[in-house]
Design a binder for these strands. Structure first.
Lengths: 340, 340
DNA sequence: TGGAGGTGGTTACACGTGTAAGTGACTCGT
DNA sequence: ACGAGTCACTTACACGTGTAACCACCTCCA
């Protein structure tokens, strides 16, 4: 018993108070404290005792220990969100924010976990240590069926993947980014363009999106595709615009409205006319595309709302069986404006 | 012992394997398992035994239970990041991302925690349950000294606040958003403008930034300030531009480059000339401001890098005493371009 | 031969919590 | 007056881990 005669503000706070401390101060057993503080209804505790316990807890500033609690309970309410280290565009980042917020509202604890330089297996084991009740893999690293198994053995009741294809054992939200590229290329082809460039961001971490979008553009037979690396800086865009003539392109699909606006600006500054000399197309239908002149053509994507996904996770956790294994989030449409 | 004769793929995975299961399979005691798997050097274990244990752990897919571990250890490596539910601009959101990534690299577990509709005290108690080793309050709700005390009693070795003023007991990163507003207003005044509007976003959650920026603008004696509510949509901007004439303003400071670009577009579309009729000024010096015409004047802000802040947190955790109580992150400068 | 010292383990406890099962005191109906 | 039944608690165990303390065995030297 190290703390006799509690000073009001000890210079070195000794230890977080436990329910045993509360029990001692209230003059009851630890079990009673637990019953009172958890509002147990099956056990009858007199009102005066309840007040004593609550007062003692208040005075000590008692806060239960989440780790001990979930150790005892055998499960957590942690939802693991392995994220890459790049913001990946406003559309995606808004979605992510919504998702976190909605999960919090459903009383889950959201834990962000970057996989660092670890291999897939190492990363998954690190995730499993937290015993998350659900994992939402956003596709930075594709999960193997074995990984899904590891997570489920560690107590995960739901493993969701958001990516281009489905993973065995997990619930999959299949969203086909290839279709975005295909729509863009088809739209450019419809405008009579035949030799188009596809901007691939140099920033790492976007591969999951940029790869399929490029591949999708290649599936359109009428056009010939040239990949173009571009960093999200004015210098990089100016350099690309400077060698534009020798590329011989009459259309360009720029991965994203942000990259598209950047490139279009550089092209205009270099004297290339849009859309006369080159048609420019973005994606994600961001507000910025409507604020520039000429207005940017784009591809609108149906992102699921964060609330919807959070609700899906919640259902999957509560009734793991009664869930579809695959949800198709197809829904993209070209939005023609002035730049094509 | 429910699992005799382990089938390779049981349809219902029974329970996550524990170190006791590993010990049983390897034919050693649980302590030996712990020593081997944690590479304890103080205890001597023969090489054949080590291999047996590792093999057993591998076969069972054993993953340690983080909650049990940190319960025993008496501390965690959780860094709590109470965030608001709005992205709050690219500058800030990039910073946040950097921070999370850097913390992960230092082997901390980042937990995002929105405070929902809870009161300050309730929210802080919810945070304390996780026994985080550090809390980085990003100022959504200002912490009271009592709150800081609660967190420290719960084991937090460092509480950092990022906001306009310092909180007793916590390490403070004081970044004065008022200066941003003052600089913008002063710059407009220097261009001869006297009646300026200050755009205040209608989106909730930005109050912490927009409030001080507005107040800062008001500290400049030469100008008269009119607050202007604006949502981040084209409709809202168009509506504001439509009644521009009756406002009688010759300058506007728009909180953010994004809001500035939005408003400037609407003004130009409504026939208001920039900068002849009205000078427009943004903040945060985003790339977008350099891509529009006329180029947007802005206020550049020295945000600390995420790595820097992560390093600071790490030092605060390891040597709580040897730390300054206050860091001033002042460093803003007007960046004149064509819109003023 | 016998004790000192090293080798390779094991036994036992603590961390903080939730809850099933048990217990003593009191009331009540016959 | 005495078993049955309620009330208001307490006792005891389990969750999974790390580590200090203990112990059996072997080797080596006096």
């Amino acid at each position: 018993m190290p703390d006799s005669t509690n000073p009001p503000n000890p210079p070195t706070p000794p230890n977080p108070p436990t329910s045993a401390d509360v029990a001692r101060l209230a003059g009851v057993s630890r079990a009673t404290v637990s019953y009172v503080l958890n509002n147990a209804e099956a056990v009858r505790i007199s009102e005066p005792t309840r007040r004593k316990v609550r007062a003692a807890a208040e005075e000590l500033g008692y806060v239960p220990h989440a780790a001990a609690r979930s150790l005892r309970a055998g499960h957590t309410r942690i939802v693991l969100l392995p994220t890459s280290h790049v913001p990946a565009g406003p559309l995606y980042s808004t979605f992510l924010n919504e998702l976190q917020w909605a999960l919090r509202r459903l009383d889950y604890t959201v834990v962000q976990y970057g996989s660092l330089g670890l291999t897939g297996d190492e990363a998954v084991r690190a995730w499993a240590e937290l015993r998350p009740v659900a994992v939402i893999s956003l596709g930075e690293t594709a999960l193997s069926p074995h990984n899904v198994d590891t997570l489920k053995r560690a107590g995960a009741r739901a493993v969701l993947t958001l990516g281009p294809e489905r993973v065995a054992g997990a619930h999959a939200l299949v969203m086909d980014q290839a279709e975005v590229g295909a729509l863009a290329a088809a739209h450019l082809a419809g405008r009579g363009r035949r030799r188009i460039g596809v901007v691939v961001p140099e920033e790492p971490g976007l591969d999951l999106f940029s790869g399929p979008r490029l591949a999708g553009a290649r599936t359109v037979p009428e056009v010939e595709v040239t990949p173009l690396a571009l960093a999200y800086t004015e210098e990089s865009a100016a350099a690309l615009a400077a060698r534009w003539g020798e590329l011989g392109l009459d259309g360009v699909f720029a991965y994203n409205d942000e990259y598209a606006v950047l490139l279009m600006r550089a092209l205009l500054d270099a004297g290339v006319r849009v859309p006369e000399d080159v048609a420019v197309m973005g994606a994600d239908d961001l507000l910025i595309g409507r604020l520039v002149r000429p207005r940017l053509s784009s591809v609108r994507i149906e992102m699921p709302s964060g609330e919807w996904l959070a609700g899906l996770v919640d259902r999957a956790v509560r009734v793991p069986s009664a869930m579809a294994e695959r949800y198709d989030l197809t829904g993209a449409a070209a939005v023609p404006r002035e730049s094509t």
